[in-house]
Simulated assay, not measured.
Amino acid sequence: MAVQVIPYLMMNGNAKEAIGFYGKVLDAQVLFLQTFGEMPENPEFPLPAEAKDRVSHATIQVGESVIMFSDIFPGQPHQSGSQVTICISTTDKDKAKNIFEGLQQNGQIRMPLQETFFSPAYGIVTDKFGVTFQIHTEEDK
Protein backbone atom coordinates (compact mmCIF):
# COMPACT_ATOMS: atom_id res chain seq x y z
CA MET A 1 0.00 0.00 0.00
CA ALA A 2 1.43 3.34 -1.05
CA VAL A 3 0.34 6.71 0.29
CA GLN A 4 1.36 10.01 -1.28
CA VAL A 5 0.75 13.59 -0.15
CA ILE A 6 0.46 15.90 -3.16
CA PRO A 7 -0.10 19.68 -3.39
CA TYR A 8 -3.28 20.41 -5.38
CA LEU A 9 -3.74 23.87 -6.90
CA MET A 10 -7.28 25.07 -7.59
CA MET A 11 -7.22 27.76 -10.26
CA ASN A 12 -9.85 30.22 -11.46
CA GLY A 13 -9.94 29.38 -15.17
CA ASN A 14 -6.20 29.78 -15.71
CA ALA A 15 -4.88 26.29 -14.89
CA LYS A 16 -3.56 25.76 -18.44
CA GLU A 17 -1.63 29.02 -18.20
CA ALA A 18 -0.24 28.03 -14.77
CA ILE A 19 0.77 24.58 -16.06
CA GLY A 20 2.64 26.20 -18.96
CA PHE A 21 4.31 28.69 -16.62
CA TYR A 22 5.43 26.05 -14.12
CA GLY A 23 6.50 23.83 -17.01
CA LYS A 24 8.96 26.49 -18.13
CA VAL A 25 10.09 27.79 -14.75
CA LEU A 26 10.37 24.39 -13.00
CA ASP A 27 11.24 22.31 -16.09
CA ALA A 28 8.09 20.28 -15.37
CA GLN A 29 6.57 17.63 -17.61
CA VAL A 30 2.80 17.28 -18.05
CA LEU A 31 1.82 13.74 -17.06
CA PHE A 32 -1.95 14.13 -17.47
CA LEU A 33 -4.40 16.85 -18.51
CA GLN A 34 -8.17 16.55 -18.94
CA THR A 35 -10.71 19.31 -19.49
CA PHE A 36 -14.28 19.38 -18.19
CA GLY A 37 -15.37 18.96 -21.82
CA GLU A 38 -13.48 15.64 -22.05
CA MET A 39 -15.20 14.16 -18.99
CA PRO A 40 -18.20 11.84 -19.32
CA GLU A 41 -21.38 13.92 -19.56
CA ASN A 42 -23.84 13.90 -16.68
CA PRO A 43 -27.37 14.85 -17.84
CA GLU A 44 -28.26 15.90 -14.28
CA PHE A 45 -25.51 18.54 -14.36
CA PRO A 46 -25.23 20.03 -17.87
CA LEU A 47 -21.84 21.54 -18.62
CA PRO A 48 -21.88 25.27 -19.46
CA ALA A 49 -20.02 26.17 -22.65
CA GLU A 50 -17.55 28.38 -20.74
CA ALA A 51 -16.46 25.36 -18.63
CA LYS A 52 -15.62 22.97 -21.47
CA ASP A 53 -12.03 24.18 -21.95
CA ARG A 54 -11.27 24.49 -18.23
CA VAL A 55 -8.98 21.89 -16.66
CA SER A 56 -10.85 19.27 -14.63
CA HIS A 57 -7.62 17.56 -13.57
CA ALA A 58 -3.94 17.74 -14.47
CA THR A 59 -0.69 16.42 -13.05
CA ILE A 60 2.80 17.73 -13.73
CA GLN A 61 6.07 16.19 -12.64
CA VAL A 62 8.73 18.41 -11.12
CA GLY A 63 11.86 16.35 -10.55
CA GLU A 64 10.76 13.46 -8.32
CA SER A 65 7.58 15.24 -7.16
CA VAL A 66 4.19 15.99 -8.68
CA ILE A 67 1.76 18.90 -8.44
CA MET A 68 -1.91 18.49 -9.36
CA PHE A 69 -4.17 21.19 -10.79
CA SER A 70 -7.75 21.89 -11.69
CA ASP A 71 -9.88 24.89 -12.47
CA ILE A 72 -12.88 25.62 -10.32
CA PHE A 73 -16.25 25.14 -11.97
CA PRO A 74 -17.68 28.47 -13.22
CA GLY A 75 -19.63 30.18 -10.45
CA GLN A 76 -17.80 28.48 -7.56
CA PRO A 77 -16.13 30.81 -5.08
CA HIS A 78 -12.39 31.30 -5.48
CA GLN A 79 -10.05 33.34 -3.34
CA SER A 80 -6.52 33.87 -4.55
CA GLY A 81 -4.02 32.58 -2.02
CA SER A 82 -6.29 29.89 -0.59
CA GLN A 83 -6.42 27.68 -3.65
CA VAL A 84 -3.92 25.08 -2.41
CA THR A 85 -5.31 21.82 -1.05
CA ILE A 86 -3.53 18.61 -0.11
CA CYS A 87 -4.34 15.47 -2.08
CA ILE A 88 -3.74 12.23 -0.21
CA SER A 89 -3.58 9.40 -2.70
CA THR A 90 -3.54 5.71 -1.82
CA THR A 91 -4.20 2.37 -3.47
CA ASP A 92 -6.02 1.08 -0.35
CA LYS A 93 -9.75 1.91 -0.16
CA ASP A 94 -9.91 1.09 3.57
CA LYS A 95 -6.95 3.38 4.27
CA ALA A 96 -8.67 6.16 2.30
CA LYS A 97 -11.83 5.67 4.39
CA ASN A 98 -9.88 5.78 7.66
CA ILE A 99 -8.03 8.94 6.65
CA PHE A 100 -11.27 10.63 5.50
CA GLU A 101 -13.09 9.71 8.72
CA GLY A 102 -10.19 10.95 10.84
CA LEU A 103 -9.95 14.29 9.04
CA GLN A 104 -13.71 14.92 9.18
CA GLN A 105 -13.76 14.91 13.03
CA ASN A 106 -14.78 18.46 13.99
CA GLY A 107 -14.28 19.40 10.34
CA GLN A 108 -16.58 19.79 7.34
CA ILE A 109 -17.27 17.35 4.53
CA ARG A 110 -17.13 19.13 1.15
CA MET A 111 -17.83 15.97 -0.88
CA PRO A 112 -18.61 12.61 0.77
CA LEU A 113 -16.16 9.79 0.16
CA GLN A 114 -17.70 7.94 -2.78
CA GLU A 115 -17.03 6.07 -5.98
CA THR A 116 -16.51 8.32 -9.01
CA PHE A 117 -15.68 7.64 -12.64
CA PHE A 118 -11.99 8.25 -11.82
CA SER A 119 -11.67 6.68 -8.37
CA PRO A 120 -13.23 3.87 -6.32
CA ALA A 121 -13.19 6.19 -3.28
CA TYR A 122 -12.82 9.98 -3.58
CA GLY A 123 -13.92 12.75 -1.25
CA ILE A 124 -13.08 16.25 -0.06
CA VAL A 125 -12.95 17.29 3.57
CA THR A 126 -11.82 20.41 5.43
CA ASP A 127 -10.32 19.52 8.78
CA LYS A 128 -10.82 21.33 12.09
CA PHE A 129 -7.83 23.56 11.30
CA GLY A 130 -9.33 24.78 8.01
CA VAL A 131 -7.02 22.71 5.78
CA THR A 132 -8.80 21.09 2.83
CA PHE A 133 -7.83 17.57 1.81
CA GLN A 134 -8.80 15.56 -1.26
CA ILE A 135 -8.75 11.85 -0.52
CA HIS A 136 -8.13 9.88 -3.71
CA THR A 137 -7.96 6.12 -4.13
CA GLU A 138 -6.16 4.81 -7.18
CA GLU A 139 -7.06 1.52 -8.80
CA ASP A 140 -4.44 -1.04 -7.84
CA LYS A 141 -2.66 -1.93 -11.08
Rank of each mutant, 00 (worst) to 15 (best):
M1I: 14
A2M: 14
A2H: 13
V5K: 04
V5M: 12
Y8P: 03
L9P: 10
L9T: 03
L9Q: 11
M10G: 00
M10F: 11
M10D: 10
N12A: 14
N12F: 05
N14L: 00
N14R: 07
N14C: 05
N14G: 01
A15T: 03
A18Q: 09
I19K: 01
G20C: 07
Y22T: 01
G23Y: 10
G23M: 13
K24F: 13
V25Y: 09
V25E: 02
V25T: 05
L26T: 03
L26Q: 02
L26K: 04
L26Y: 10
A28M: 04
Q29A: 13
Q29W: 01
L31G: 02
F32L: 07
Q34E: 12
T35N: 07
F36H: 04
F36D: 05
G37S: 08
E38M: 10
E38T: 08
M39T: 09
M39R: 10
M39D: 08
P43F: 01
P43V: 05
E44R: 09
E44A: 13
E44G: 01
L47Y: 09
A49T: 10
A49L: 08
E50Q: 13
E50G: 09
E50D: 15
A51D: 03
A51W: 07
K52N: 08
D53I: 06
R54H: 02
V55C: 06
V55W: 02
S56K: 03
S56N: 08
H57Y: 15
A58G: 07
A58C: 08
I60K: 09
I60H: 06
V62W: 05
G63T: 04
G63H: 03
G63C: 06
S65H: 12
S65F: 14
V66Q: 15
V66W: 03
M68T: 11
F69V: 04
S70L: 04
P74H: 08
G75C: 06
Q76D: 12
P77Q: 12
S80D: 01
G81P: 01
G81W: 08
S82C: 11
S82V: 02
V84N: 11
V84P: 00
T85S: 14
T85M: 14
I86N: 00
I86L: 14
I86C: 04
S89F: 02
T90I: 15
T91P: 01
D92R: 04
A96K: 07
A96T: 08
N98V: 11
N98A: 15
N98K: 15
F100T: 06
E101T: 12
E101Y: 11
G102M: 04
G102F: 12
G102S: 09
L103Y: 09
L103N: 11
Q104Y: 00
Q104A: 12
N106R: 13
G107L: 06
Q108A: 15
I109L: 10
R110T: 12
M111A: 12
M111C: 02
F117N: 06
F117Q: 07
F118W: 15
F118N: 00
S119N: 05
S119T: 02
P120M: 07
A121Y: 14
G123H: 04
I124G: 00
V125L: 10
D127N: 13
G130F: 04
V131L: 14
V131M: 12
T132F: 10
T132N: 06
T132E: 12
Q134Y: 07
I135G: 10
I135L: 12
H136N: 14
H136V: 03
E139C: 01
E139F: 05
D140T: 11
